[in-house]
Write a protein that binds this DNA or RNA. Structure first.
Lengths: 402, 402
DNA sequence: GCCGGTTTTGTAAGGACTTTAATAAACCCC
DNA sequence: GGGGTTTATTAAAGTCCTTACAAAACCGGC
């Protein structure tokens, strides 16, 4: 099941045969855009602007190469006429595997070429020993492959989401304070040994950003924040992930203007100031000083603070506003420089909902020239995994001529 | 002198003729890379990987279309053999005009297709009345055209650099606090009436960034700061200008953590804190408190402060360090999010040289994970103009198939 | 001053595409 | 079962690149 040859990005030597490759790719792209639905050949003619014989030839080639499959056992279209030949992506041609090594869970997913989810596995894990983590990763992968009925050889691309900073070239993890020993594990090589396909390791917040950007579709600049215990972000510009020198989006290390608790756990200043735990701590102090607050009624975590604020508790509202102000001031310079269309917040804190959102919006409007839309990610817990799979699919599609 | 047809970005309909267009473009690109020097036909064969008849055909077409010109009156190469036909870009085919409406000067430049400077005009101006500014602009353009011996009709693309925020679509200036009345002048339409070519209005700092990026060449992320009375920046990613929603790079409006003088002249907080005038003012206060400083010896402006600091004056050094710290703290969040390869400083303050540079580098190293190279723009006063011309040339080249 | 050597240009036949156009197939409805 | 409709199939024509060969122009030397 080889990919079409001549996959180089922009080759200049041009003979007649490249025309065929070009048109074949064009047809494949058109089929792809109809996602998992089969498409009539005649429709491809309209979509691609090519003539029927050309499309016919291309489809024939693609079927032979395993990229497309026929759907001919079809009841015809209602309006008379010879029944159309229909084709669709043969998902099995290039399934991709995504992996998310999260704070307390490891999850894996397998998508086929058409974006259908073939497998999804999630396993919680105590992340104290990095070496044991690797075992869990292997287990999750094995389970996912089993669930999808695939062998490792059949996977066409693999993307792993991990916290920390990743070197784009080698795939090595350069910095991962939240997982002791994780930097000394060569995850990339470990996986490359088991899979005969491109393996890419990428920061989790970056992949979450990619997922959010794909959901919004269209061009534009997006700053997608993952906000929980820790704080990260990803930048997506016109659908492409911005990596910079590799550490792009590390907003957790922004130094806010106020005083910041000086823990020594590898977290960045902003995380220590407004991470989920810091929000709870701030609320505890406020509740102590103001016994009249509804916050005093039980154990306090971030969710409780947002709930109380939503219910109108003044003390909680003040805490939320403080958090929002700190956040807005922290990212305002980046917003001014990037001028993103939107800032989307995901992760645990995103569950706060509109209480936090409106406060951030208000403060940002004060600090920026063209305030971006501030929103909350509509994606569920598997945002990161979705992003990883999305990037893996990109990798596969990228092998085709433009 | 029409441009080759079918200039659309990524057209899919493919017949045999596109091959010719593709190859012709390939040849044209190869000629372009040899800049203003003529190139032998046989060399084009090697560079493009095409065969000789193909190259011959393409060159013939390009000469006929006016893009290339022959150089046949040539003494042969020293090593025997039939004398080679040589061709070069016909610069006159598509000259472009760049305009820089600067703080105290208006300048215009004309480059030909090969990047040769055909004209350069600079005129200082009192910018109190925007309507009069327009007259100066017209005058400078007329002078430049005269100098190059061209008519307005012959200009193939025009790019104007202006302070303020520009709407990409309409070319209207949305916000320009430094030029009273400038937003009510429809510069874009005014020029579109006079020129039969694409007219683009762009923020000056953005164009400066483009110029700096072109000088560095290669891929990567660049944050280029223009630092004088005012403070702006541009972001260039892999050679392409990042615009965001349109106001990208407006670092002058970052709010630094300290107290900021509250003038009402439309300048942003960071400009009021560390613009050239603010630096001087800070030094004046310091000199008043410390009569022993060498700064007391004369009128103080920013240049004097940097000179004194370079000479070892402790008071001046402290001022410079303060300025550098404020700057570093202001852009650190943006640097963390973007992870640029380099931060390059241009504009008047850039003349401060290494005194300021090392201080900024030191502070940034403290505040970021992967500190960028901090450098000073090697380009002279016409950085912005160079960027405008560069973008205009892009516009022309962009009309060709890839 | 003529003759190989060398480099390049020019021209003709061959092959690979896409396109146009015309023909055949398959189905619905009446 | 025939008309209408939609689609697939096939053949001829045109365009372009390529391969291969021949011609041109210049150098150096005898």
């Amino acid at each position: 099941m080889d990919l079409p040859e001549g996959a180089m990005e922009e080759e200049h030597a041009v003979g007649t045969p490249v025309l065929r490759r070009l048109n074949t790719a064009s047809v494949l792209r058109a089929v792809r855009e109809c996602a998992p639905d089969p498409i009539r050949l005649a429709e491809l003619v309209k979509l691609t602007g090519l003539t029927r014989p050309t499309v016919g030839q291309a489809v024939e080639d693609l079927v032979e190469a395993g990229w497309l499959q026929h759907h001919h056992p079809i009841a015809a279209s209602r309006k008379g006429g010879r029944p159309a030949v229909r084709v669709s992506l043969r998902g099995r041609a290039a399934p991709v595997l995504g992996l998310d090594v999260g704070p307390h869970t490891v999850s894996a997913g397998i998508d086929d070429l058409a974006g259908r989810r073939l497998a999804a596995v999630r396993r919680s894990v105590d992340r104290n020993r990095a070496s044991r983590l690797l075992t869990v990763v292997d287990g999750v992968i094995a389970r996912a492959l089993e669930e999808a009925g695939l062998e490792a050889d059949e996977i066409a691309a693999l993307v792993v989401a991990t916290p920390g900073i990743v070197d784009a070239g080698s795939g090595r993890i350069l910095l991962a304070p939240s997982v002791p020993g994780w930097t000394s594990v060569n995850l990339s090589d470990h996986l490359r040994d088991r899979f005969r396909c491109p393996v890419r390791v990428e920061n989790d917040a970056n992949l979450a950003a990619l997922a959010v950007a794909r959901e919004r579709a269209g061009p534009g600049t997006l700053l997608a924040v993952q906000w929980g215990e820790r704080l990260g972000a990803g930048v997506v510009i016109d659908g492409r992930l911005h990596r910079g020198t590799g550490a792009a989006g590390e907003i957790g290390f922004i130094r806010p203007s106020g005083r910041v608790p000086d823990t020594d756990d590898g977290r960045g200043p902003l995380e220590r100031a407004i991470g989920a735990e810091a929000i709870a701590e701030q609320a505890r102090r406020a509740a102590g000083a103001h016994p009249e607050s509804a916050l005093g009624g039980g154990p306090i975590d971030a969710a409780a603070v947002f709930a109380a604020a939503a219910a109108g508790d003044a003390v909680a509202e003040r805490v939320v506003d403080d958090v929002a102000r700190t956040f807005a001031h922290a990212i305002a310079p980046a917003v001014l420089v990037l001028a993103p269309d939107a800032v989307v917040i995901g992760g645990g804190v995103a569950r706060a909902g509109s209480v936090l959102l409106t406060a951030i919006t208000r403060h940002l409007a004060d600090l920026t020239l063209t305030p971006p839309d501030v929103g909350i990610s509509g994606l569920a817990e598997d945002t990161i995994l979705t992003g990883a799979l999305s990037l893996a699919l990109d990798e596969v599609w990228h092998q085709l001529p433009a």
